[in-house]
């Protein structure tokens, strides 16, 4: 059984101009010990689709579909039960580290309270666990750090403290939203190695949202690529990254700077503008920016279907081997 199995997830958010569909039928599953990498366009609904699982959406949002966490549906679960699970078995590192840290409480207070509440440790034991966690995420002088407040730390240090809090209760699933964007590459490597160790030794399942395709490449087992509220391609890491088949995935990889390319040459961004939610073009949401689009792409929304070694939402499939 998968640790988490999300099926046909749809999210609508209220806006002044009416409800807007932000996530439009997303499926994925993650197994114990597995890292699922999620990448895609900025604004494509990656964060919202994760916040929906934890009941953290703005008021008057609507969520359809199911999200079975160890067999129980998070979407329909009573709030109180969800609160119990969230933070203990299912932990999240938020994209904005300010969201996860309380500005008025010392780091030590936030970390030890969390451990004490969920793991029922006494004061001394929770203090020890807190120091251990800060060492794991490589915060210098952990004992002094426990007495300090979030604004005393650099952006990347705050991000690491948020990771420490998320890992505090030995969750079964960690949803990490851009956990290493504020980190330099050597500290990032340390965090990725920590996650890699936890998934090997403790069967931690990880959903890792990141724009850094290098990070995906180094740790994800499988990847899902989002565009405009949908998954457009998913499959094994090496298949998708070395041989992308959706034109969007292809263009995304093409946009990366290449060491051999001279700096006089501009990087190749995808032409056109990303669609605004609520104003998606008909048919495939990517079609106005796609060089391979044909008539059907403008008429029908392509479904994510099995296509050889992966799942793909592109009937044209121009990069098929």
């Amino acid at each position: 059984m998968s640790v988490l199995e999300v099926d046909s997830l749809r999210v609508q958010l209220p806006t002044p101009s009416g409800d807007v569909t932000i996530v439009d039928g997303v499926d994925y599953a993650v197994e114990a010990g597995e890292v699922l990498g999620v990448a895609g366009e900025s604004g494509s609904g990656k964060t919202i689709s994760m916040l929906a699982l934890l009941g953290l959406l703005p008021e008057r949002s609507t969520v359809h579909g199911t999200a079975r966490f160890e067999g129980r549906d998070l979407i329909t679960m009573p709030r109180r039960e969800l609160r119990d699970i969230a933070g203990r078995d299912l932990a999240m590192v938020f994209q904005d580290p300010f969201t996860s840290l309380h500005p008025m409480l010392s780091v030590g207070k936030q970390l030890t309270e969390h451990v004490r509440r969920h793991l029922h440790l006494d004061r001394a034991a929770s203090q020890r666990r807190a120091v251990e966690l800060l060492e794991d995420v490589r915060i210098p002088d952990p004992e002094a750090a426990l007495r300090a407040f979030p604004h005393h730390f650099s952006g990347g240090m705050r991000q690491r403290i948020a990771i420490a809090i998320a890992l505090a209760c030995r969750p079964k699933l960690l949803i990490a939203d851009e956990p290493t964007t504020a980190l330099d590459v050597t500290v990032q490597a340390g965090i990725l190695r920590l996650l890699d160790r936890l998934r090997r030794e403790h069967e931690l399942a990880v959903i890792l949202i990141t724009h850094d395709l290098g990070v995906l490449s180094s740790i994800a087992d499988r990847v899902s690529i989002f565009y405009a509220g949908r998954v457009v391609e998913s499959g094994a890491r090496d298949a998708v990254l070395t041989h992308p088949r959706h034109p969007y995935t292809h263009a995304l990889l093409d946009a990366l700077p290449h060491p051999e390319v001279s700096k006089e040459r501009p990087l190749v961004a995808i032409g056109g503008a990303p669609p605004a939610p609520g104003r998606l073009p008909t048919g495939c949401a990517f079609n106005p920016r796609c060089a391979h689009a044909v008539e059907t792409c403008r008429l029908e929304v392509p479904q994510l279907v099995v296509a050889g070694d992966r799942r793909l939402a592109c009937p044209v499939d121009p990069f098929r081997a």
Binding site: A39, H211, A251, L253, A255, L256, P266, L267, A269, I270
Partner: peptide, 8 residues
């Protein structure tokens, strides 16, 4: 927090 295309 920008995707590769937006970064480019």
């Amino acid at each position: 927090s920008l995707d590769a295309s937006a970064q480019a």
